[in-house]
């Protein structure tokens, strides 16, 4: 297994080969970065797996098509791919009036600009992003009533069954279903309300 330095050199060689016209050289890079782009950049911002996959495909196609616009700076190509993905996610949201409110909320909550000081290692960057998403979600969850927060925690995060969730909350399954439904509605409303808070980012 090559070390990080060797991996970066290999990445640079592949990028330069693609820029010389052999677009197929991008394949190993796309296969390496498709999963973190999907899991930590696109899906958390879209919420729909099918659309997320479409956006991923579009992102990778655009990156290959425009590889000549990328300038190697001694860091992985991942931040550049990430920014293309984010732009496309926002295009999807803006095109859909229905999801515009959620999109505006996400624009406030999840970073859009790639931090130039971010880790040079793509996987670390993806992990940092997931940690950052989780923090923001937990912050929003913290503003919900306890029972709503617990319902979401048990069912969506810990993935306990409906029956187990109901048992822990000492309610029937039907009541738990109502609780979870209201909890997600409340979270969505809370997230939407936070969109009205001024962007605290510098």
């Amino acid at each position: 297994m090559p070390g990080p330095g060797a991996e970066l050199e290999q990445e640079q060689r592949l990028v330069e080969e693609a820029q010389r016209g052999n677009l197929d050289a991008m394949r190993p890079l796309l296969e390496r970065y498709a999963p973190p782009l999907y899991g930590t950049v696109i899906l958390p911002r879209l919420g729909d797996a099918a659309t997320a996959e479409d956006v991923l495909r579009d992102t990778l196609a655009t990156a290959v098509e425009k590889i000549n616009r990328f300038t190697w700076q001694g860091k992985t190509i991942y931040p550049w791919l990430r920014q293309i993905a984010i732009n496309k996610v926002y295009d999807v949201h803006r095109a859909s009036k229905r999801s515009r409110r959620l999109a505006d909320a996400l624009a406030q909550e999840l970073p859009s600009e790639t931090d130039p000081e971010a880790s040079p290692d793509a996987m670390m960057m993806a992990e940092e992003e997931r940690t950052s998403h989780r923090g923001r979600i937990e912050l929003a969850l913290g503003e919900l009533p306890d029972r709503y927060r617990t319902a979401i925690q048990l069912r969506l995060i810990e993935e306990l069954s409906r029956e187990e969730c109901a048992r822990r909350l000492e309610v029937t399954v039907g009541t738990f279903d109502v609780l979870l439904h209201r909890a997600v509605r409340a979270f969505r409303k809370k997230f939407g309300d936070r969109a009205d808070v001024p962007d605290p980012r510098p």
């Binding site: 394949r27 796309l30 296969e31 498709a34 999963p35 999907y38 899991g39 899906l43 958390p44 911002r45 879209l46 919420g47 729909d48 797996a49 996959e53 991923l56 495909r57 990778l60 999801s99 959620l102 996400l106 997931r130 998403h133 989780r134 923001r136 979600i137 937990e138 979401i152 969506l156 995060i157 993935e159 439904h181 997600v184 509605r185 979270f187 969505r188 997230f191």
Partner: peptide, 26 residues
């Protein structure tokens, strides 16, 4: 609501695309 639920899940746990789907998308 389903999208919100998916966003919460995606943000709080690893989401796998799968090797076969990855190859297909690439």
């Amino acid at each position: 609501l389903l999208e919100v639920a998916t966003v919460i899940r995606a943000a709080t746990r690893p989401v796998e695309l799968g090797a076969a789907r990855t190859r297909s998308v690439v």
